[in-house]
Design a protein around this nucleic acid. Structure first.
Lengths: 234, 234, 234, 234
DNA sequence: AATGAATGAGCCTTCATTCAT
DNA sequence: CATGAATGAAGGCTCATTCAT
């Protein structure tokens, strides 16, 4: 009885080990420069064992990336479940995305890379499918929170949730990309703080979407948060 | 005298030929899958000749990409020199970027890819430098137009040009990325027109930046454009 | 008691199952391209189980081939036991070989391949031994029938049975090889029927071996057969 | 002028070097066990250089085999051009084939292997084409000599040249195969000389094909040869 | 007896890059 | 200036085989 379970757990563990090793190598070298040999070495497994668990280097890359997606999902979900007004929770998700970027930057990079390469043609259909599902899950959190805001009359009725979502995403993502590549340059040479810029952008977008009531609720919630933080500090 | 010139011209021509061939191959295959052999074949040159003009495949890739940047620069410059009010010209540049995307999508893709890969470590410093300059030139057009708008009191005084620029860029870029990868999906499954979404985003950003006066000027210029277009159609 | 027997029978059955699976895979893919994985899958057994029954892929290949040899043996034996005159039965065996080729072509191919490759160095001595025995059994049928023909004065006394046998075999085998590889080419481009050619060859060989008496007997038997066939048809 | 030629010659030489190395390795190890690494080493060239001259291991194998075919062709051609009566020259060719077998046994083996494997699917079309042509050239010599014999009334009119050719070939080939694999066994255990057997077989086939006139001519030529040989010996 | 899991050894092939001419 | 030729260095992937359970 327990034996099957244990085997199962061990196998799962092995998958994780491989993912850990792969993550490390991909992070350091990128997809192209990473080698299965090196991943195997880090995983302390034979190279062929890797292929028992993942069909190809590309599949493995995607699997790592998806693990990153899982983290993002959790963080977004947490941000969307604070009990605050919906409109504030929409804002939270932008902050969460930023936190994710700061905490798991390599996942962000991997995901980013993945979006624009011929990679997908080399991935197994199964993995591709999984990936699509994970993606939808992520968008789902954002969209449903925006929907709440609309339903509660905090966002204008003519806001289209998925459209709003992609606008937020676009703003965040672009800014993060700059942060990733040349944060120092922006900070020092141009004297621009990109995180602030991102927040400013999100704010502008929200302003354009919120109703009067939404604005009040939002401001209140922001103030509340500010107060709480100050309390905590004492 | 003429001889040196002719040689010079021929050499320049050769560079262009190589770039043409490389562009074609990179567009079709992407960086990783493209081979110098194939590029040489398309250029009708010996493979080694390529190395006389470009230090590496990566350098060549960057050179092609920069040619794309040149196009973008021209299009942005044109959009910024219409004689319309500055605030309208800022808007124009968003439209120009979109036009660039539609007309030279492969450049967009190449540029995009370039941004997030370990590629840069393999590029010669000279090429890297050139690339940075080209980049600055592009940002320059946008920034200076925004500056004009501020100076003329059409954008709020607290708008920071380069910051505003990166916000516009971020919005455009993110949306274009979606268009590039899954326009059909957004259109059909989600019923979202991404071009419109991009415009909406830009509009929201502008709304947040313009002064009252700016809004009036902008609206007027938009109406004017509309009128002109209708005239043209007749 | 019954328990041991049943076990024994089950084990034998298992061997057959493996052979079935292997036969199918070898037939489709050939030795080199066939994989133990695939064979195991077809056999619905674990790959390691295969090694419980056969020491290596090559051994397994040989085992399958020998099963084919068994069929050939049976067919030759039948052809040699018709009650017809010995000289006719020698002829019959050529026909039987042809029938075997047509019915079990993949065995023919496997056997053929086996004959000329470095395969044998990778086979276990036991299997090699078995194989030699099987071979001898087959030659035995042919040789003893030829011997009969000599003893009965139907073949010349100076005919050496095993030598005659190898001559028949050589003729048949070479022709079949052509049939196997390019029957259509011979038939269409050259207008040669290879089966007929093979028979013609055998006939020439027999002519050279038979005594006058043998010729008469042979002709009589052939006519007899012809008559019988015609009867059957009515 | 001379420079191009020399280059050309050098390149040709390189091809030969590769072929030499490949021949050696294939002979020792067979196709499957041979490695491009080893061939490259023997050729004292980089492994990749091999691929400049031959598209794949299989192509290379075929190229070596064809070189063997060339030898066979030359030997057959010589045997067919002795000035003796056509019927004797047909016989000569059997002897020549045997000489070829004895002198270039590894070519025989390679050719033999080639005939029965999935190899052909992995060969480039060009090489396949070359191979087919070479084959035809070989059959051509034999066929045309047989045709001469028919035309001169030395073979029966109803003999079909290509059919006769394949019969001789079949007989020779089958016997050589036995020689190759277990000559010692036949010689010692069975007391059969396979070369003699092959000749006997060819003789039987000829007997069945020759006219009376042919037989006389043939016998005369054989005696003549015998006489010449005896003279030489003195 | 049966097998799931692991792997070591290796192989073909690809290409960017260099050099001698 | 142009290039044909050569190659070093890798890299992904396969598979027969073994072993602990």
């Amino acid at each position: 009885m327990g034996i099957t379970e244990r085997k199962e757990r061990e196998k799962e563990q092995r998958r994780e080990d491989i993912l850990d090793a792969a993550e490390r190598v991909f992070r350091d070298k990128g997809l192209a420069a990473a080698t299965m040999d090196e991943i195997a070495e880090h995983a302390e497994l034979g190279k062929s064992t890797l292929y028992l668990y993942y069909k190809s280097k590309e599949d493995l890359y995607l699997a790592v990336t998806m693990r990153g997606g899982e983290h993002l999902y959790e963080m977004l979900k947490a941000a969307a479940s604070t009990g605050e007004p919906s409109v504030k929770r929409v804002w939270n998700m932008g902050e969460a995305y930023l936190a994710y970027f700061n905490q798991y930057r390599h996942y962000f990079q991997m995901y980013y890379f993945l979006e624009n390469s011929q990679l997908h043609s080399q991935v197994s259909p199964e993995m591709s499918e999984l990936c699509a599902l994970a993606d939808q899950k992520i968008w789902g959190v954002v969209v449903s929170t925006i929907q709440e805001a609309i339903d509660e009359g905090l966002f204008e009725k003519d806001v289209v949730p998925i459209q709003a979502a992609v606008m937020f995403w676009s703003n965040c993502n672009g800014l993060m990309r700059q942060m990733d590549r040349q944060d120092a340059y922006w900070e020092k040479a141009l004297n621009i703080n990109l995180e602030e810029t991102m927040q400013k952008g999100n704010m502008l977008l929200m302003e354009g979407m919120m109703t009067q009531k939404g604005r009040l609720e939002f401001e209140k919630a922001m103030n509340q948060q500010q107060t709480n933080r100050e309390k905590e500090e004492t």
